[in-house]
């Protein structure tokens, strides 16, 4: 899955997740939220993980950050390799909590959907943007404040010298998300995980934030994992896309290729659900909902997890779980009939 054209500075992906399994042990049973996910992201590249509620897309991101509560969530299989600036590959799952906290916020950073609940209401913006700099880089308070002002300027906050002393409640939703981005980028991380960062924002503000993220990512040649439910956004932000359904990646490949030429029935069905502009003749396009509902995470179906809702399903699909197969060098799909799924 390595792409020679995107690898210029490093021979390794910044992040490679292999056969990851994150399970939640609840009173009702075991929820296999992430079950055999393999992904990688290169330097300067954006991978979008797209899926509906309960597909496991957010849990994948949180597992990489090791932010899940250890009392209920357990990683029962797989590995997460992070390739740092020092050219050393580290298995994040093998690190002690202390070692992980040195990486978190320094080499790998994360931003979330709701900036109000991610920011601490009793500290100023400057305190919070400066905190990773004091913790990881050992800057003193004055230095951290100066850097925070510079970071706020880079994320497009006007009069940062004033805003640095503002509290989160004094800012709008869009401004707060810019502050979160400044916090995340403070230590110049190699990898940014963005979990639905624009979902709570208005469209015009969403467009601003997407633009900002792309600009910052290109300037810093950061790797980015962008978790979203919105296939339309994927086209604007990502180079590659992984489509998740019921705890697994069902299709992955370059964005233009996957969206124009989907090779998994779920991806196709998802694209048909999107309300979009009328066709050329001015007729309204009718929406094609996906029949049935998401499988119960406590008892996922045998065989292909999508078979009960799939118009291509064969008896064989109920029997055994399909493997990810390559349709060409960069595009993979978990469907035995991919060749028949016409573009």
């Amino acid at each position: 899955m390595l792409q020679p054209d995107t690898i210029q500075h490093s021979a390794h992906p910044v992040l490679s997740v292999t056969d990851l399994k994150t399970h939640f042990f609840t009173d009702a049973g075991v929820i296999k939220a992430v079950n055999g996910v393999t992904l990688s992201v290169n330097e300067g590249e954006t991978l979008a993980i797209v899926g509906e509620s309960g597909s496991g897309k957010s849990v994948t991101g949180l597992t990489v950050m090791r932010l899940l509560a250890r009392t209920t969530a357990k990683v029962v299989g797989g590995s997460i390799h992070f390739h740092g600036r020092d050219n050393v590959s580290t298995d994040l799952l093998a690190l002690s909590e202390k070692a992980m906290s040195r990486i978190r916020g320094h080499d790998i950073a994360m931003i979330f959907q709701d900036p109000m609940s991610s920011l601490n209401p009793v500290f100023t913006v400057g305190d919070q943007v400066g905190e990773p700099l004091r913790v990881h880089k050992g800057l003193n308070k004055r230095e951290a404040r100066l850097q925070a002002i510079e970071l706020l300027r880079q994320v497009g906050i006007s009069s940062p010298e004033k805003r640095v002393d503002a509290y989160p409640h004094e800012l709008s939703g869009g401004m707060r998300q810019r502050v979160m981005i400044a916090v995340a980028l403070a230590c110049d991380p190699r990898l940014l995980i963005a979990d639905e960062p624009t979902t709570a924002l208005d469209v015009t503000i969403q467009a601003q934030i997407i633009d900002l993220l792309r600009k910052l990512q290109q300037e810093r040649r950061m790797a980015m994992v962008f978790v979203t439910h919105d296939l339309k956004l994927v086209k604007q932000i990502a180079d590659r896309v992984a489509v998740m359904y019921a705890s697994q990646v069902v299709e992955e490949g370059p964005v233009d290729e996957v969206l124009a030429n989907p090779r998994h029935p779920y991806t196709r069905a998802l694209l048909d659900c999107i309300p979009s502009r009328r066709d050329g003749s001015g007729n309204r396009r009718s929406l094609q909902p996906i029949p049935g509902t998401m499988p119960n995470p406590l008892s996922p179906p045998a065989g292909c997890r999508f078979h009960a809702r799939c118009s291509y399903a064969l008896p064989a699909c109920i029997v055994s779980e399909p493997e990810l197969q390559a349709t060409d060098g960069k595009h993979v799909t978990r469907c035995i009939r991919w060749q028949e799924i016409a573009p």
């Binding site: 709008s172 999107i274 502009r277």
Partner: peptide, 22 residues
Amino acid sequence: AALLQAAPGYAGESRQILGGEI
């Protein structure tokens, strides 16, 4: 026009992103 261009599905060529906030 700005709203239509900001929508993620916008397919047109020139895309002007509205600055500022409400």
